[in-house]
């Protein structure tokens, strides 16, 4: 991972965190992880995953582990889905985002139950829908901006 790539991801994370401030309960940074997975740069994905885990877990209020599950599911869904679809296909991303939205609801509910927390389910459902809706445009924007900034060397 060269310096410009590092700077790009740092800027992405900063922008993503600011966006997340306006969208409580929604993970915007997952779009970056998806782009990194599509680039098939495992070393980059590993470090990005690590940083995003720390960011999301640190900002959250649930016990550690929810984000591990959440991103783990993304990696699994991506690798399974890649057998059936083109990784950069929009339909694939939309399906993936639907799956992620559903997992967001299930995992948060499960982790809250395990921690004996009472959380409003109607709000969680709404946030999961938002999550599913946010991923495709966030992925598209990240994909386009990254291609513009970093050139074709980093595209899928």
């Amino acid at each position: 991972m060269n310096f410009s790539n590092l700077v790009w991801w740092a800027c992405f994370i900063v922008a993503g965190v600011w966006l997340q401030q306006g969208l409580p309960g929604v993970d915007v940074l997952v779009a970056g992880l998806l782009v990194s997975l599509q680039e098939r740069r495992h070393y980059q994905t590993f470090w990005l995953l690590l940083v995003l885990l720390l960011v999301q877990e640190g900002a959250g209020t649930l016990a550690f582990g929810s984000t591990v599950l959440w991103y783990g599911v993304l990696v699994v869904f991506f690798n399974v889905g890649r057998w059936l679809f083109e990784a950069e296909n929009l339909a694939f991303v939309v399906l993936l985002s639907l799956g992620l939205g559903a997992c967001h609801f299930l995992f948060t509910l499960m982790m809250a139950s395990l921690q004996q927390l009472d959380i409003p389910q109607d709000r969680l459902l709404l946030e999961s829908v938002w999550q599913a809706c946010v991923v495709p445009p966030a992925w598209w924007l990240t994909h386009i901006v990254r291609r513009r900034c970093m050139g074709d060397a980093y595209t899928v």
Partner: peptide
């Protein structure tokens, strides 16, 4: 600094 932030912010909270 922020209110609920991120997907794991399930509780009513502020930073």
């Amino acid at each position: 600094v922020a209110n609920r932030l991120g997907p794991q912010a399930a509780l009513e909270s502020a930073i």
